[in-house]
Structures are given as structure tokens and as C-alpha cells.
Amino acid sequence: MDQMKVTYEAMLSLAAEMVWDEALRKHRSEQIYCEIDNALAQGDETAFRLLTEELRMLKK
């Protein structure tokens, strides 16, 4: 029974970590979209390219 409890706790911990990672990824994506909008509004091509590349890497 103890082994089942350890396994269950490990799976629960992994699930929580996956939810946390997804929340962080979603939050960063939203930030990047805002920064991309600002870069476009300011005509900052360098920032736009860097941000779109970061967004591509984040989506992989």
C-alpha cells in the first residue's frame, strides 16, 4: 500500500508541475504578444524579430 501512495504522490506532483509549466508558458506568450504589438507600433524591427523568434521557440 505504501508503494501505491508513493506512486500516486509522484504522479500528482508531476501533474501539478505540468499545469504550472503550462500556466507559465501561457503567461509568457501573452506578454510576448503585447511586446510584439508595441514593437510594431514603434516600428522596432529588431525587437519584433527577436520576440517572434522567442514566441516560436515557446510554442514548440
Rank of each mutant, 00 (worst) to 15 (best):
L55G: 06
V19K: 15
R56F: 10
E30P: 03
E17M: 07
S29R: 12
E30G: 09
A16M: 10
M11Q: 13
K60M: 13
K26M: 11
H27F: 13
L51S: 02
G43T: 07
Q31E: 15
Y8K: 15
M18A: 14
E53R: 01
Y33T: 02
Y33E: 11
W20M: 07
T46Y: 06
I32C: 01
L58P: 07
T52A: 00
G43D: 02
Y33K: 11
D21T: 09
E30W: 01
R56I: 04
R49D: 04
L12M: 13
D21G: 01
A47R: 06
E30K: 08
L40A: 05
S29T: 01
E54A: 05
L40F: 04
Y8I: 11
M57L: 15
D21H: 11
V19Y: 11
S13A: 14
C34W: 07
H27I: 02
E54I: 06
T7I: 15
A47C: 04
M11F: 11
A23R: 12
S29I: 00
M4K: 14
K60Y: 06
K26G: 00
D44W: 00
V6Q: 14
L51N: 04
E54T: 00
E17I: 01
R28A: 01
R25G: 03
R28M: 07
A41Q: 05
L50I: 10
M57H: 08
Q42N: 08
L51M: 04
M1N: 10
A15F: 09
Q42E: 10
N38K: 10
R56H: 10
A15V: 12
N38C: 01
E17V: 00
C34G: 13
N38R: 12
L58E: 07
D37S: 08
T7S: 08
M57K: 09
A47Q: 06
F48L: 06
D37L: 05
T7K: 14
Q42L: 12
E9Y: 05
M1D: 09
A39P: 03
K60H: 12
C34P: 00
M11N: 11
E53M: 06
E45G: 04
K5T: 14
K59I: 02
A10Y: 06
A23C: 03
M57R: 13
R25A: 07
T7G: 00
I32S: 03
K26R: 11
E54M: 03
A16I: 05
C34N: 13
R49Q: 09
T46E: 09
I32W: 04
A16T: 09
A47L: 08
L50C: 01
L14E: 15
G43H: 00
A15S: 12
M57T: 07
Q31W: 10
L12K: 15
R25Q: 09
Y8P: 00
E45W: 00
L12T: 14
E54W: 03
L12A: 14
S13G: 15
D44R: 00
L50V: 13
